[in-house]
Amino acid sequence: MPYKIPESVLVVIHTADLQVLLIERADKPGFWQSVTGSLDAVDEPLLAAATRELFEETGIVADGRQIVLRDWQLSNIYTIYPVWRHRYAPGVTENTEHVFSVQVPREIEVKLAPREHTNHLWLPYLAAADRCFSASNAEAILQLKEQTAAMPR
């Protein structure tokens, strides 16, 4: 299996009233997160990666009309958890994560990729931030209120 590219996307899925969708990792029960995923190729556009990961992990299609991914133009560099470092080339210890969000209707159907995630739940944004195992994911959720206020109407 080829090594993962140490560049990824994070997609915070939320409703208009800031309910946040969290998904539980299949390989780490109790680890809740937003949609995340590495680029498939070094030249994969970030928006394409976010669109792909959103669909692969939740079945949600960002159609660009009703379901629109929003690039926050924000990147985080974090240390890759030791448990997952074997997926990266030797010596790679950091990942650059690009943050996106998407507002969806609360009644949207969620179809999890069973090999990746086993459960999902909707929580108010502050509770969702508390539930995330990843500090960068929690921080993005905490910024959600400010980010959505800045969204064009």
Rank of each mutant, 00 (worst) to 15 (best):
V99R: 13
T118F: 02
Y88T: 07
P2K: 15
P90R: 14
E97S: 06
G30D: 04
N76F: 15
V12M: 00
A41K: 00
Y88S: 03
I60M: 05
W84P: 01
I141F: 03
E107T: 08
Q19S: 09
R131Q: 08
T36E: 00
D27R: 06
L18C: 03
W122A: 07
A113R: 11
V102W: 12
L21V: 07
A149P: 00
A49V: 03
N95Q: 05
L46A: 04
Y81R: 15
L54S: 07
K145P: 00
K4A: 13
R115P: 01
P152T: 09
A89H: 09
L121C: 13
W72L: 13
I80C: 07
F55P: 02
N95E: 04
Q147W: 15
E107G: 07
R131H: 03
W84G: 07
Q143V: 06
F55W: 02
H98Y: 08
I67Y: 05
A127C: 10
H120F: 03
G64C: 05
A26Y: 00
P90Q: 13
I67E: 04
A127L: 11
V9P: 04
A140V: 07
G91R: 02
E109R: 12
V83K: 14
Q66L: 13
W84R: 14
L54F: 00
T36K: 09
W122E: 03
D63L: 09
N95H: 02
D130R: 15
Q143F: 09
F100L: 02
P105F: 13
R25M: 08
E7P: 01
R85K: 05
R52E: 05
G91P: 03
D63F: 03
L54I: 01
P45W: 01
M1C: 10
L46N: 01
E139A: 14
A135V: 05
F31V: 02
L112S: 05
L18Y: 05
A41Y: 12
A140Y: 12
Q33F: 02
A128C: 08
Y88R: 07
T15K: 04
P45K: 08
I5E: 06
L39A: 00
L21N: 05
S8R: 13
R153Y: 11
R25K: 14
E109N: 05
E53S: 00
A16D: 14
L54D: 02
A138Y: 09
G59N: 06
S75A: 13
A129S: 13
T36P: 07
A138P: 10
Y78W: 11
V42H: 12
A89Y: 00
A48C: 04
T15A: 06
Q147R: 14
Q103L: 02
P82M: 10
P105Y: 11
P6M: 09
W72V: 10
L144H: 12
I23T: 03
G37Y: 04
V42N: 01
P29R: 14
S75K: 11
L121H: 06
I5D: 06
L126N: 09
I60W: 01
T93W: 10
N76W: 15
R153P: 15
S34K: 02
A89V: 01
S136Q: 11
L18N: 06
A129K: 05
A113E: 14
V83E: 15
A62V: 10
S34N: 12
V83P: 02
A150N: 00
A62D: 03
D17A: 08
I77R: 15
Y125A: 12
P29M: 12
T58F: 02
Q147Y: 13
L69H: 04
G64S: 10
